[in-house]
Simulated scan of single mutants.
Amino acid sequence: MSITLNSEQEKFIQTQLESGRFTDAMEVIQTAFHLLEKLNDDYLQWVEETRQKVDLAIAELDRGEGHDGETVVKEILERFKQARQETE
């Protein structure tokens, strides 16, 4: 596989090499791929955790344990108002 970098990408790699943190361009690229992989893994984990939370919330609503949105927003706004008054 052959990859062509644009001038900004080449400059970025050169800057990283000049910083002394990396010994060669391949090390910079490997680090970038490692970080991209971690970012992707973190995102997939977030998606799974969010799905579980949504499923839990749906089950709670099905059991009649939920609150309507308007009530929840009013409660939150009241808490903000009280917190603001306490700091004044």
Rank of each mutant, 00 (worst) to 15 (best):
H34T: 15
Q9R: 13
G69A: 07
D55K: 09
R51N: 09
V73P: 01
K81I: 12
L36E: 13
N6L: 02
K81N: 15
T4S: 13
Q85R: 10
L61A: 15
A83D: 11
L44M: 10
E65D: 09
Q82L: 09
A59W: 06
G69S: 10
M26V: 09
L44V: 05
F80Y: 15
L56C: 03
L61E: 14
E8Q: 12
E88F: 07
A25Y: 08
E70V: 05
Q16P: 03
Q52N: 13
G66R: 02
F80Q: 13
G64P: 04
T50M: 03
E88Y: 00
Q82C: 05
R63A: 14
V72R: 04
L56Q: 11
E86N: 04
N40F: 02
D62G: 02
E86A: 08
G69N: 09
K74M: 03
S2H: 11
K38C: 11
I76P: 05
D55W: 06
F12L: 08
S7A: 05
L36S: 13
L77D: 14
D42C: 02
K11F: 07
Y43R: 09
G64M: 08
D62E: 15
T87A: 14
L77T: 12
Q30G: 06
D41N: 14
L44T: 05
E48H: 14
F12Y: 15
R79E: 15
S19T: 04
Q14S: 14
N6W: 02
E60N: 06
N6E: 05
E48P: 01
W46F: 11
I13C: 06
T87S: 13
S19E: 00
R84H: 04
F22Y: 15
E78N: 12
V54N: 06
L39Y: 11
R51I: 00
K38S: 15
Q9K: 10
E18F: 00
G64A: 08
